[in-house]
Nucleic acid binder design. Structure first.
Lengths: 233, 233
DNA sequence: CCTCTGTATATTGTATACAATTACCGTCCG
DNA sequence: CGGACGGTAATTGTATACAATATACAGAGG
């Protein structure tokens, strides 16, 4: 049986759709990842206005954000299209993400407190319960997973990391690997998280970093097996 | 005798001031780093229009870019101010930069070719000559240094890295450490580059990565000694 | 004297009109 | 028939007017 990817979607703050530029961002993003947008597809700003229901000004704001996340790319003549990630770029994204999440875990280990541990245990409890059901509740799993990694990022206390990491956790990979993971894979994610919590409790930054690196790199290899039928190692 | 910092300013593409949003970006950036902008200073968009001489639309584009680079920060109520980097944030920036530049060097080592080696040697020759003058030519040094690191980034062939790294090589540090480096420090940078070239020629990615890490971390420690009078180690 | 609240003011957010670029396509000339 | 040229349509870039929102301040009530 096959499910979905451990790491995903810390960035999208699904709340606060108040600002038009935020709704534009969300809707265009959704269009690219789950809607009719396929890699290489040309998109005019006007088209994006139709998709998001707002005018060009907030659309342009959203576009700039999506460009930073490399979900949209701009041709030499400033025309927009949906990004088409090469295999090498996806591999690179995993590598960079492993480095930065490792670093975040190391910092979090140094700054963790009792309240943080409690919150991490709560979230991971929910994650584990969601997986252990007869048919795993993927949506809840993904949400809990996001919360778990967000908490680590919070305790890393690095504004710079908080700005950099979300851009690496974007969804083209999720889109290409949705429902790819087995129940055992999902359970292993929960166990990784448990070990991370143990490392945090021990304030052992090397341990925390190593577990996090394993966590991400396992996802990387599972991704390879699932999408290309071979292991990159 | 005291001079300036090894790593700096790969990002600013000093050319192509055609678009108003580009001139706004450049002028506001210059204002923050070398003009009247001091950390914590409040800036309205109107004020930024005066500074850059264009209307609010391109100013807002530029502001978003500068926010990503964390030169500008936005308060909870969406008001802008010049970023005020804490010591911890600066340390973090060096740490992240060391990781990513190391990674870039590793990738470049795998992808280097004869033409790239020649270009790197040319650039570093110019850098060394600029330093060896009776009074080192700092401007030329900085330009050559930027070109050198840009070349490595080019040969790393990672669009993602090319987007991430420039945001870490920004200037608040340069501003706070301008003219801080001795002639020996500058010469050592040239020697680091020579060793990097040797590592590239040998296609030894571990060597290249290690040299790059040393290169950045030495700058980090020199920065500490120069600005805080103590070594972080 | 403090706090709360309402209103004026300042600032940011959005829509739209217009300018500048770029691509598209038919035509002309070799 | 192929390629360069030029005109037109499409698209992005900029300015500005207006709307929404947040702050600041004054005055009333406790």
């Amino acid at each position: 049986m096959i499910y979905s990817l451990p790491g995903s979607d810390y960035s999208a703050n699904s709340l606060s759709m108040s600002r038009a530029s935020d709704t534009a961002y969300e809707k265009i993003r959704r269009f690219i990842l789950y809607g009719g947008g396929h890699p290489g597809m040309q998109l005019t700003e006007e088209r994006l206005c139709d998709i998001s229901g707002v005018s060009r000004t907030p659309v342009r704001d959203a576009v700039q954000r999506l460009e930073n996340e490399m979900l949209l790319v701009r041709s030499a003549s400033k025309r927009l299209s949906v990004a088409d990630w090469s295999d090498d770029e996806i591999d690179e994204m995993f590598a960079l993400r492993a480095m930065l999440e490792c670093h975040a875990a190391e910092r979090a280990a140094q700054r963790m407190d009792a309240d943080g541990l409690r919150r991490l245990r709560d979230v991971n409890g929910g994650l584990t319960r969601a997986v252990q059901r007869a048919t795993p509740d993927i949506a809840t799993f993904l949400q809990a997973n996001r919360q778990f990694h967000d908490l680590i990022l919070e305790y890393a206390q690095s504004p710079r990391l908080s700005k950099l990491l979300p851009a690496l956790v974007e969804q083209p990979v999720v889109r290409r690997t949705a429902q790819q993971y087995s129940k055992d894979d999902l359970m292993q994610s929960g166990k990784d998280h448990d070990e991370l919590i143990a490392a945090f409790a021990a304030r052992d930054q090397d341990w925390a970093g190593a577990v996090m690196t394993s966590h991400i790199r396992r996802a990387f290899h599972s991704f390879h097996l699932a999408t290309r039928g071979s292991d990159p190692a």
